[in-house]
C-alpha cells in the first residue's frame, strides 16, 4: 500500500456534445481515500451520476470527457490512469478494481437470464481459469454472503423482491473483491425498512473487505448517516466537501445550507415548514387506541 488515497480525480470535465453543449461536470477534483465511504450529494442534473460514469468511462455519446484525469492507485502500488487505457485494458479494469451498484431495483439485472448466469459471467470474463463448478460455487457463496441464499442461483430477477435484487447487485459487485464500489442511488427505489437493511449490509461488508465506496444519492440525510466525507455537487461543480459531521453542523456553502434545510428533521424542529397543527378530531389520549 503506497498511499492512503485510492482514486485521484483531477480537473475532470464532461460535456454533452449537443447544441448548445451542456457542461455536465465542470473541473471536478476529488480524492477517494482507501476504505472510506464518500458521499456524492446533489439534485437531479447536478452531474453526480455523470461524474461516476465518467470515472468508469461508461459514458455514452453525446457525453464526452473534455478534460482531466482519473488515476487509480492500485494496492499493488501501480498508478492506473483511466483515461489512457485501451478498450481491452479498460474492460479488465472494470469490476476487477472498481465495481458498480445501480439504482434499478428492477432494471439493473437482465430480465431473461438467471441471476446465477449473471453472477457467473463476471468470473468467466475476469477469471477464465476458473472451472464451471468453481464459478457456480463462488456465485452461490456470494449470494449466501448477502443473505439471498445460493438456492436463488436459478431464479430470474422478476422472482425476487426489490430488496433481494439489490442484494444480488451487491453480491455481484463484491465478486472480484474490488477496491472501489460506486453506488448510484442504490436504495432510492426501496422502502425505508429495506433501505436500512441494505445500508447496514453495505456497512458490514465494507468493514469486512475494506473497499472504498462512492455513494451517490440526493438523499442527504441518508448520506449524513453513512458517509465519512460528503461532496455536494451543483451544476457540475463540487461546491463543498467535508466530513459528514462538519458538513451537517457547520456547512460553509449557501447551497449546502439550502439543501440541508430542504430535508425536514424527523425528530427535531419543523425548520422551514409553515404549517402549524390544526384541529384534531382525536381525543388527546387516543394515540394508542389501535
Amino acid at each position: 500500500m503506497t498511499t492512503d488515497d485510492l482514486l485521484t480525480v483531477s480537473q475532470f470535465s464532461v460535456s454533452y456534445d449537443v447544441t448548445p453543449p451542456v457542461e455536465a461536470v465542470r473541473d471536478v477534483s476529488i480524492t477517494v481515500r482507501r476504505g472510506e465511504i464518500l458521499g456524492l450529494a446533489g439534485e437531479s442534473g447536478c452531474g453526480k451520476t455523470t461524474l461516476a460514469y465518467g470515472i468508469q468511462r461508461l459514458l455514452k455519446p453525446p457525453a464526452v470527457i473534455t478534460s482531466g484525469s482519473a488515476v487509480f492507485h492500485d494496492e499493488s502500488g501501480d498508478d492506473i490512469d483511466i483515461n489512457t487505457m485501451d478498450d481491452a485494458q479498460m474492460r479488465a479494469f472494470r469490476w476487477e478494481k472498481a465495481s458498480m451498484v445501480f439504482q434499478g431495483a428492477m432494471n439493473a439485472l437482465n430480465p431473461i437470464i438467471t441471476i446465477g448466469a449473471q453472477l457467473q459471467d463476471v468470473f468467466s470474463t475476469h477469471r477464465p481459469a476458473m472451472t464451471r463448478r468453481d464459478r457456480k460455487l463462488e456465485s452461490g457463496r456470494l449470494l449466501d454472503l448477502v443473505g439471498v441464499g445460493s438456492a436463488r442461483l436459478r431464479s430470474y430477477p422478476h422472482e425476487l423482491s426489490g430488496g433481494m435484487r439489490q442484494r444480488v447487485m451487491i453480491a455481484m459487485a463484491l465478486a472480484l473483491k474490488p477496491q472501489l464500489m460506486i453506488m448510484d442511488e442504490p436504495t432510492t427505489a426501496l422502502d425505508v425498512l429495506v433501505q436500512r437493511e441494505i445500508i447496514e449490509q453495505i456497512s458490514d461488508l465494507r468493514a469486512e473487505f475494506g473497499f472504498s465506496v462512492i455513494f451517490i444519492t440526493h438523499d442527504l440525510p441518508l448520506l449524513l448517516e453513512i458517509s465519512d466525507r460528503i461532496a455536494v455537487m451543483r451544476e457540475g461543480r463540487i461546491v463543498e466537501i467535508d466530513t459528514a459531521r462538519n458538513l451537517y453542523q457547520n456547512p460553509q456553502n449557501d447551497y449546502t445550507r439550502r439543501l440541508l434545510a430542504s430535508f425536514p428533521s424527523l425528530t427535531g424542529e419543523r425548520g422551514g415548514f409553515v404549517r402549524r397543527p390544526g384541529p384534531s378530531t382525536l381525543a388527546t389520549d387516543a394515540g394508542g387506541m389501535f
Partner: peptide, 22 residues
Amino acid sequence: DEDYVTVAQAKGLKPSRVLVNY
C-alpha cells in the same frame, strides 16, 4: 438504454457478449 446493458459493460464483459446475451 436499459440499466442492465450498462451493468454488463461495467462488469467488463466483452462487447460481443454484451451485444448477444444482454
